[in-house]
Design a binder for these strands. Structure first.
Lengths: 116, 116
DNA sequence: TAGTGGTAGTCAGCATCACTAAGTAGTTGA
DNA sequence: TCAACTACTTAGTGATGCTGACTACCACTA
């Protein structure tokens, strides 16, 4: 999309991937494809793999190597308990931010309604 | 708040400040105080000032030096035409992200509703 | 047999951004 | 004089996503 989206994804992409893993376990290539389907057309594989390494090192996911019919073996990531807690914290932070910014947006278009 | 919020603010804080300036011109110290009032209690002055320097260098705002009754002169920032366009682009990007992530959140809590 | 294309993952280097921490300066009041 | 508030500046750090190139496995085809 653009530079703005790139910067916005910092901090949120991690939550997005954890949310995808919360639905069901997945491997890197698959996650990248799913992100593309869901509209994040510009996210590159390298970014996703680097992110997966990070969340693995932090112990938010469990990893299993699974052979593939086509190509090299897959590293399948599963959200574990710690990852689940982290994801919940993500949702709280995200919701807070969405509410604050939503208020700002509303304030701009309907300035007379708020008491200043 | 925490590390998650710090990372999420990357890319969004700029939009937040531009949105504040869209309501009315303001200077750094004032913007910091306003952010604190609006719930972003952990945002430090240094962060805001650095951001203001950036958006000034990109030509998104006009700057005027105004004497203060208390303390050094203020640098009052006003959103200009380019800044307005940039802010609109920010809202588009932000809305897109909120919708995508909202879908993900919904999907997790009501998985059977979506067709896969 | 060599070449192409899809699958799957790794790595080095870069730019951007928020934070930390310290400093400079002006004004007011004890 | 010194503290406290106002107002802005600056150097350095860590985290993150992107770029671009690379390795490797498999199937199909000229």
């Amino acid at each position: 999309m653009g530079k703005q989206m790139t910067e916005m994804l910092k901090g949120t992409l991690e939550g997005i991937v954890l949310a995808i893993l919360a639905v069901q376990p997945a491997y890197g290539y698959e996650i990248t494809a799913r992100l593309r389907e869901q509209g994040f057309s510009d996210i590159v594989e390298g970014t996703v793999y680097a992110l997966l390494v990070r969340i693995e090192q932090r112990g938010l996911v469990d990893v299993a190597k699974v052979p593939s019919e086509k190509g090299p073996p897959r590293k399948v990531y599963t959200l574990n308990a710690l990852g689940g807690e982290y994801l919940e914290e993500f949702w709280r932070t995200w919701t807070f931010l969405v509410e604050r910014i939503g208020q700002l947006h509303h304030h701009i278009e309907h300035p007379q309604e708020e008491g200043e």
